[in-house]
Every structure is written in C-alpha cells, then in structure tokens.
Nucleic acid binder design. Sequence first.
DNA 1: CATCATGTTATAAT
DNA 2: CATTATAACATGAT
Length: 292
Amino acid sequence: MPELAEVELARRIWEPGTGQRIVAVDSHPHARVYRDTPASILESTLPNSFIVSSRTHGKRLLFSFGDRSPCKSTGAHPTTHLEIHLGMSGRLFLAGPDHEPTKHDHFILRTKRLGLVYSDYRQFGRVLLHQPCLDPWTELPVEVLDPEFTIACLRRLTARRRGTTLKALLLDQTVFPGVGNWMADEICWRLPCHPGIRLQALDLARLRTVSRQVCRGALRHVADKNAPLDRARGFSPGRYVEQVPPRSWLFQHRWKAGGCCPRCHSSLARGTIATRTTAWCPTCQPEEASEA
DNA sequence: CATCATGTTATAAT
DNA sequence: CATTATAACATGAT
C-alpha cells in the first residue's frame, strides 16, 4: 500500500537495524523483485557490512552500508546502497534473527539480534544494489516537502502540459514523487477541484500549498504516530499498528460503499481518471461546467 | 468464475 | 513532442 508516508514508516520499521552488522542474507533468488539486481549480488556484497544510514525519496527507500558501525566511528562512509521500491504490496518488517522465510519473504538481512524482512506477494516491487558511490540519488526530482518545491519549480515542470488532467499530474512521480492514488484524490478533494480538470484551469500556487499539506499530514498520521514506540521499547515484531488519516480526510470514506464527503456529506462519486479508480465529491468538486 | 487492488513500465495509438 | 489507452507483471480478497 505504499505511498510516501507508508514508505517512511517502512524505513522506520527497519531503523533498529542501523548500526548493526549483516551476518547473512537469505533470499528467494528467482523472485521477480530481483529483475534489476540478482539476489546473488546481494548475498555476496552485504554480509559483514554495517547498516550506516537510511532515507527515503518519494516511494523509494535507500539503505546505505559501510565497513564499520556508525556508532563506533564518526567517519563511516557508505560503500554500498540498497534501494527498495515496495510496488503495490511490498512491506518491510522486523523479525528475530532466525526468522524462517514464508512464501513471499524475498529476502532477509540477518544481524546478530534481528531479521530485517522484505516481503512482497505481488512482486511489483524491486530491489537495486547501487555501485559504490557517495550518493546514488543526486538526479532525483525535488520532493514535495523540499523548500525548493516552489511555484516557479512547479510552473517549470508543468510548462508544456496544459492539457494534462490534474489527477494524471499528481500521479506523475517526476512532478509529485511519493504521491499515489489515495493522496492524489485527497489533494484534489482539498483544493477542491475535480480530478479531471485540465491544468490550464488550475491555480498552481494553491496546488503547491495543498499538496504540501497533504504530504505533511500523511507523514504525521501514518508515520509519526509509530515513531515514539521505537525509542520507548526495543523491537518486537508486529508492534506497528496500521495507522491511517483521521475521519476528517477523504481517505476514510473513499472506498466505503455509500461513502460520503466528510465536508458536505454528499455521496461520493467514483470513476476512472488517468487509468486509476478515482473518488471525489460531486458537490465540492463539480465537473468544470464552464467549458464551451 | 469475474473483478478489483495505495504501482510502474513498455508499447501502440491518437 | 504530448497525451491517452492498453496490457503486462503475480497474488489475494471479495
């Protein structure tokens, strides 16, 4: 289910592994998630290295490895980076160091105390081991919550796309990295604008403001609520409860049969826009009737 | 059995 | 070139 907030939560779930040495890597070598990097490369590269740091960008995760623990020396520089994209059904969880992989656990990074498990039953996700370098992520687009995500930036990214629908733009990972189907609908609802509206009829400043609000709110509701648990008690598998945005968000109502707009209580409309199932409020987000 | 799923990508058609 | 449509990927839930 991963959009940017769930991806950040996944990163935090593996956080207890930071600083630890990988003692072994077990994988399902024929799984489709290895279409970029064969499992054998992970198995031969990662053991004996330490997890030094991790971060996310949009829907991507990056775990960086070095040859010593970041706790013991200040100058531990990463030598290798493992990138993970969770696709539609990927998830990360913690288990004990001897965790027996089940059917969809495609790899396990084992440390002395933990098993870091990557599981993905549909295998739309993928893993990618980067060649040794300081930072494999220098070419990625500006993130929505980055201070550089300015109106000028947004104007540049949309310059030749007057005819695109709002929903298609929101799903474009080069423009709104990390925004997926539910966040896109949430942004349209909050603007409020019909998701099928053409960009020419759109206030980019407003779009920037609202998209940032939704990204920040999603992180707060989905990822932050779990973080304090991490520091309070050590690891315990399955401790992370799935967190979702509150009932004041469209999220809570969009898939329910007979779901209503949390603002005006109209019955929600549903249809396919930009190839994805889309929910919106026909009252708050009317179809642009001003078109000739 | 048919449909749908919080994603991406390749390819074809407009 | 921009945009849309379609299929494909692999599995589970309804």
